[in-house]
């Protein structure tokens, strides 16, 4: 099982890197989906099959479909030419250096400690459900509030702006 973990981890890192450096938005989105699948395989291997399924269903299924629909709606044909000049080395070398320093610190902290082998047992959905609806019930309700707020916010932001509120009151932004 160890070799499967390393293969899936390499696939996740490579596809995420390709997502960052790809110039086409749709290619980048497809690389992100591959990365999510690879992370799902990693979760399955380390003994969390329930969230591995949730990752595929919700992240790669629902959220990525939202991205695909928005990219189709926006019709970004003229944006592609402008992106060519944005990837000069002067622009990406500073942020990459900062991220690499952060990563080097984390690698140092992780390798300075003695190793800790992960447990053998698989955590089944029964344990997750029991814990979620006893110990974390308040957080579940907070997540429900957050989802309701997200639905209302997305509906409010997505609707068309009214041009006429009343017969004599035109919206000022529309007159410009």
């Amino acid at each position: 099982m160890n070799i499967l973990f390393y293969i899936a981890a390499t696939a996740a890192i490579v596809s995420t890197l390709m997502m960052v450096i790809s110039k086409n938005v749709v290619h980048s989105l497809l690389f992100l989906i591959v990365s999510l699948f690879s992370v799902s395989v990693v979760m399955f291997i380390i003994g969390a099959p329930f969230v591995a399924a949730l990752e595929v269903i919700i992240y790669a299924g629902a959220i990525m479909v939202l991205f695909v629909f928005v990219i189709m709606m926006l019709n970004l044909s003229d944006e592609e030419k402008r992106k060519k000049r944005l990837m000069k080395s002067k622009i990406w070398i500073g942020p990459s250096a900062i991220s690499l320093i952060l990563l080097a610190e984390m690698v140092y902290v992780l390798t300075a400690q003695p190793g800790y082998a992960m447990g053998q047992e698989v955590v089944l959905p029964v344990a997750v459900g029991e814990l979620m609806f006893t110990k974390y019930i308040v957080v579940v309700e907070l997540a429900a509030f957050l989802l309701i707020a997200g639905i209302i916010g997305a509906y409010h932001l997505g609707q068309k702006e009214k041009t006429v509120h009343h017969r004599y009151l035109k919206n000022k932004n529309q007159e410009l």
């Binding site: 995420t16 997502m19 990693v42 942020p95 990563l103 082998a117 992960m118």
Partner: peptide, 23 residues
Amino acid sequence: MNVPMEQGILLAAILFCLGLTGL
């Protein structure tokens, strides 16, 4: 199946740093 815990955390750290770079 005995993947060390550090390597899993390390994978998460690498993915986080890649996302930060992209952002």
